[in-house]
Design a protein around this nucleic acid. Structure first.
Length: 286
DNA sequence: CACCATGTTCCTTG
DNA sequence: CCAAGGAACATGGT
């Protein structure tokens, strides 16, 4: 469940649950997710360490811990990839099939589960160095966005997925933001007018904030024990009202009516990924 | 069997 | 050096 809003909601959920919890034992079931950190170093560093903080940067989760013996604070960097999840389970409950890392916290286990193993839980921080500004913070402005788009002839939809432009937008919210800004996903990044950049800037923030707000008010099913998924995108925890389902205006809605004009939503492929848009509301200029 | 999937990195090409 | 495109990673759903 991984774009900025999902990670933000997860971070808010986990922060109080992990605060001051001590790692008693480390179980690495899929060493790949630690790379380039070795299993040995990971286990040695984390065992007996205590969680002191958790924040988000783009789609990354940044855990801070303090080692007991060394007292040296250190950072643990998490990324959910496409299918990653992080949650707590009572100690002793059966582990999910694709549990990649298990941290024994005493009464509970912290689980990092990832079906496809594209995610990460590592001591390596280099990936976060390449991230652009946080879209919901002051460093992200219409001017900074405009500057970032200047030298790129890539379609704006593809450019929005570039994490060095702005951190945290993924394939879903790229389509959603462009729909909200009424901009064609095919328009070259360096050809957006100032007014369009301004609209896109607002749309990005609105779309992300709306998604976070949605997640914050709905009791989400983190371990994914509900019927469908660990649902954030399309579903909900049992007992949650129906209207929380259709939060996305165009993503994965090919052939369904545009919420604004009723025209059928189209699906196209850009950079080997699906793009969804309304061909009427998001018409291309010359 | 075919194609699709919320992401990132690496390699090649120009 | 940089921009851009494509494959690779790995598993499961339809």
């Amino acid at each position: 469940m991984p774009e900025l809003p999902e990670v933000e909601v997860l971070v808010r959920h986990l922060r109080p649950l992990l605060q001051n919890k001590k790692v008693r034992r480390v179980e690495v079931r899929r060493a790949k997710v630690l790379a380039p950190t070795s299993v040995r170093k990971f286990a040695r560093t984390l065992t007996h360490a205590r969680f002191t903080g958790l924040r988000r940067r783009g789609k990354y989760l940044l855990f801070t811990l303090r080692g007991v013996n060394s007292r040296a604070p250190f950072m643990l960097v998490g990324h959910l990839g496409m299918t990653g999840r992080m949650y707590l389970l009572p100690t002793g409950s059966q582990l999910p099939k694709h549990a990649a890392v298990v941290l024994d916290l005493g009464r509970q286990n912290f689980i990092f589960e990832d079906t496809r193993y594209f995610g990460r839980l590592t001591l390596d921080q280099t990936a976060t160095d390449r991230l652009g500004p946080e879209p919901l913070e002051a460093g992200f402005t219409p001017a900074s966005l405009s500057k970032g788009l200047q030298r790129s002839g890539q379609p704006i939809k593809v450019k929005l997925l570039d994490q060095s432009l702005v951190a945290g937008i993924g394939n879903i919210y790229a389509s959603e933001a462009l729909f909200r800004a009424a901009i064609s996903p095919f328009l070259p990044a360096n050809r957006l007018k100032i007014s369009e950049v301004a609209r896109l800037w607002r749309a990005i923030r609105a779309v992300l904030n709306e998604a976070i707000g949605c997640g914050s008010t709905v009791p989400l099913d983190y371990p994914g024990e509900g019927k469908r998924d660990g649902l954030f995108y399309f579903g909900r925890a049992p007992g949650t009202p129906d209207f929380y389902e259709e939060r996305l205006r165009v993503y994965d809605r090919a052939d369904l009516p545009c919420p604004t004009c009723g025209t059928a939503i189209k699906r196209s492929v850009q950079a080997a990924r699906s793009t969804f848009y309304c061909p009427k509301c998001q018409r291309r200029r010359a």
